[in-house]
Each structure stands twice: as C-alpha cells, then as structure tokens.
Design a protein around this nucleic acid. Structure first.
Lengths: 110, 110
DNA sequence: GTAATCTACAACCAAACGGTTGTAGGTCAC
DNA sequence: GTGACCTACAACCGTTTGGTTGTAGATTAC
C-alpha cells in the first residue's frame, strides 16, 4: 500500500503528467492528441501516460484505433484524503497547544 | 511555481520522508533521533530531511548542538488544496453527467 | 582542554528517470 | 490489399535519486 502511495505522488511530481491528468479528468483524449500539446516526442508522452496508469490515476480505453486516456477520480480523491489527514494531525496539534496555553496562563497569574 | 509543486510531490513520493513529516508535524525532532527509526545510515536520513526542506515541507531550527526538524503546515495545506482542486474539477464533471442522464431518461420513456 | 555528540558535506556507486530514435503490430479508409 | 494512422515497446543515453562511507566543523559535558 505504501508502494501505491509512492506511485501516486511520484506520478504527480511532474508538470507534464499533472497537465495530462487535468485534461483527461474531464474528457477522454487519445495519446496522440495529448502529445500535440507538449514539446516532446510521442513516445515520451506515452511513457508519462504509462506512469499515470501504473499509479491508477488514469485508465486507457480502446476506441477504434485510438486509446482514450481518462482520469481516475477515485485515486485522485484518495491522494487528497491523504493530504487532508496530514492537515488534520496539524489541526489537532494546534488545538492541543491552545489548550496548554489556556491551562498555563491562569497558573502564571496565581 | 511548477517547480515548487514538483518538489512537494516528489518529496512526498517516499515512505521514509512521509513518515518524517508525520513525526515532525506534531513535534520537533533532532535528525539523529529521527534516524534511529529507520534502517539506513544517518547520512541517508539527513538527505531525506534536505529533500523535505527544499520542498518547504519542513524547517530546521537550531537547538544547541541539535537541529530540530519541524513540519510546515502551510505547505502541506497547499498540497492538499491542490489535490482538492482536482477533485473539484471531477465533481463538476460528474454533476454534468448526472444532468445529461436526467435529461435523457424521460426522452427514452416518451 | 579533551572527549563525546550532533550535524554537514564530499565522493562514490547502482538503479531509476526522462528523454530520444527506431521498429513493429493493429485498425481504418478506400 | 495498400497506405496512412495510432499505439506499443525495445534500446540507448545523460542526469538524478537514494543509498553508502569517510572526513570535518560545532557544541556540549566534564
């Protein structure tokens, strides 16, 4: 499961791949049509899609001779939840600090 | 700015680094005390901390001869917001699909 | 002042990344 | 069936990553 998270974050750690996800999440796009937007070879874009696919951030669907790339919302949601968990931990810590301050202040006054 | 996001996601794409952030977000820890938890050299952990530092996910604070590592909540929140944005885009798409289905179904019945 | 502790950083190495070109297999149009 | 198009994948290459060991600089304890 840690490997799964590794793959998700690694996949998102590249601007080209994030842009592919952005495009693919609203509509399916062929690999060729995706490749037209970037200043690199078709094969390079194909590799990026493969990385996204292994991270389950994207699926491919045959459409005639094309392969439609589509964003996988469940996985993106999973990653967002993970990060929110980190925020949650922090929020509890901040709350805890507030409690400590609230307890200490009166004692200093006595 | 894209580089900043690259660095954040890349930093989180490693289980050891995620664990360091987890520990450091609630309390400051010296690099040595962090290193005790992992099956690798001190220098390796030090490098991981450096990656987190460059991604602004963590700050170091001198405390005598130790260096306290502490999680940066603002950056974590930033990453969470980014992922939520992706989810948001999806939600709109899902809503759109629902609308299409809602429009189509009656027509099929008539 | 000396020894122990904590950190920083350089040098090295194998493996993974991110790109390239080239070749080959399906699918569509005609 | 031929040609054009879309995709898959192998081979290659320079750079980065993630680990190691070793050395050196501060800081603390005594």
């Amino acid at each position: 499961m840690n490997d799964e998270i590794d793959r998700i974050f690694h996949a998102l750690a590249d601007a080209t791949r994030r842009d592919i996800v952005r495009r693919a999440i609203t509509d399916g796009h062929s690999v060729t049509s995706l490749a037209e937007h970037y200043d690199m070879s078709f094969a390079a874009v194909q590799k990026h899609v493969q990385v996204l696919e292994r991270a389950l951030l994207v699926t491919k669907e045959r459409r005639g001779r094309e392969q439609l790339v589509r964003g996988r919302v469940d996985t993106i949601g999973r990653a967002a939840t993970l990060l929110q968990a980190y925020e949650q931990i922090w929020a509890q810590r901040a709350l805890h600090i507030d409690e400590i301050l609230a307890e200490d202040t009166p004692k200093e006054q006595s």
